[in-house]
Design a protein around this nucleic acid. Structure first.
Lengths: 195, 195
DNA sequence: ATGAAAGGTTAACACTGTTAAGTAAACAGT
DNA sequence: ACTGTTTACTTAACAGTGTTAACCTTTCAT
């Protein structure tokens, strides 16, 4: 295993087990048994390293979504499955999920859009399914890509509130998720033109 | 103006004008013309100061929502107005909005739930309106509070995607917002039992 | 007048990301 | 076999961070 790969592995482990706050260059270096500056031989800076982790996380998230894709199932069912898979992944891998939304383009001007475009590719998967649903005339949406984004955004909001511990203690998490899913799917799917 | 108030004011100005990254204790102190350690006379630590700013921001956000409340308007219209007000506030005061979701309870164990409960009071406003709509039988929801949270979560997701610059460059922001609003409101409002 | 409290200060600790300069081993060309 | 260069790494240092301990003054109450 190359040092670059080891740094990535150690970083990810540190991130997951100890949290983002503990993921410092020196700590990573220590666990990889090299000096802190060696990291800079393989990553331009911490954001660059973070970005590599983000890309891995996006891949994992995408893989988790892909797993539940089942074209035989019909659009509505498929969307719900994906939405549930999205939420499950986020709640089961909180740190991995959260770094995806942690690094900002404006805070790392050295990395222009291209990298973030790549990151966005997760949306394409969703857009593809929506498009397919449209083609099969199960749904009537103006623009599959926009709807993929709104769906994604809504799901992100739901998991974000939970992960940020902003959910009222009076509300059971399960019930919140079910209600949110119901609202989101309904709001999306009823674009189906009345046949 | 007390030093405590001045620290808050300077912090807010620094946060808004220079961004969260530039808001360091020493910089705040410099602008308030005191030593950095003086801040600790009025705030236990940086998170405590941040929490005070968050509370102010929540108040501002709530005030912005209150402004558009118009009970003569009917539930659907009112919800849409509030949703738009929420998005507008977030986009027009990005730094103020973002710190609301920045500090985490688990990262500041010294502040237990009580403070965050207070922060949550913004949701109550929304829940109130939904309850009222329910009372007037304009809507049939099982639990107004849960629905207030799901609505809030979805709105947060929408602004979050925009503020985090995760929106695909192919998608015009305006169009994204309109589509999201449409989906969110529809998903929520069609719980109205068919009369 | 004396003691205590209020409201500040300076110095220091243990961190952080990052850069510059240096070293030691491996390799290539003549 | 002796060069010169590249590769992979290190140490030392800079400038910054949040935070604590210890120390001054000034104000105030008894």
């Amino acid at each position: 295993m190359s040092l670059r790969e080891e740094i990535l592995e150690v970083s990810r482990e540190l991130l997951i087990k100890e949290g983002f706050g503990k993921m410092s260059m020196r700590r990573i270096a220590e666990r990889a048994d090299v000096s802190a500056t060696s990291i800079y031989l393989y990553f331009k800076n911490k954001d660059d390293l973070l970005l590599a982790l983000i890309e891995e996380s996006i891949e994992n998230l995408k893989a988790a979504l892909m797993e539940v894709v089942d074209v035989s199932k019909g659009l509505l069912m498929q969307l719900e499955d994906m939405a549930r898979a999205y939420i499950s992944y986020a709640l089961n891998h909180p740190q991995e999920y959260e770094i995806i939304y942690m690094v900002r383009p404006e805070e790392m001007p050295r990395y222009p859009k291209e990298k973030f475009m790549n990151i966005r590719s997760g949306y394409e998967l969703l857009a593809g399914i929506i498009s397919e649903g449209h083609a099969r005339e199960q749904i009537d949406v103006e623009d599959a890509l926009i709807n993929a984004y709104t769906l994604w955004a809504q799901l992100h909001g739901v998991v974000s509130v939970i992960l940020n511990k902003r959910l009222d203690t009076r509300i059971p998490q399960e019930q919140f998720i079910e209600q949110a899913l119901e609202n989101i799917i309904r709001g999306f799917v009823l674009q189906k033109s009345p046949v």
